[in-house]
């Protein structure tokens, strides 16, 4: 599946707009990102968010990623 990259995540991978990676859940996605892209380690350690079909997930790693879903990796957002 195609995973779009934004902000610091994109910069950490040299400006890549997207990557191809297979994962059925957010947990699998995180694990494979960690294995395949060591440059992402500091960002993954600090926490990132995943938008699946527009819905933003920060911590629900068991969330299933549907086939053909739009998946976007985003910075983790704080609030006030």
């Amino acid at each position: 599946m195609k995973v779009a990259l934004t902000g610091p995540i994109r910069d950490a991978l040299g400006g890549l707009a997207s990557i191809e990676i297979e994962a059925d859940t957010i947990r699998e996605l995180m694990q494979r990102l960690e294995d395949r892209y060591p440059a992402l380690a500091p960002l993954l350690d600090a926490g990132i968010a995943v938008a699946i079909n527009g819905e933003i997930f920060r911590d629900r790693w068991g969330e299933v990623i549907p086939r053909h879903a739009e998946v976007v990796l985003m910075p983790r957002i704080p609030g006030g």
């Binding site: 779009a4 934004t6 938008a51 079909n53 527009g54 819905e55 933003i56 739009e70 976007v72 985003m74």
Partner: peptide, 9 residues
């Protein structure tokens, strides 16, 4: 498509 990445619902 939002300027920060995802597509809006």
């Amino acid at each position: 498509r939002a300027s920060y990445g995802p597509t809006y619902g």
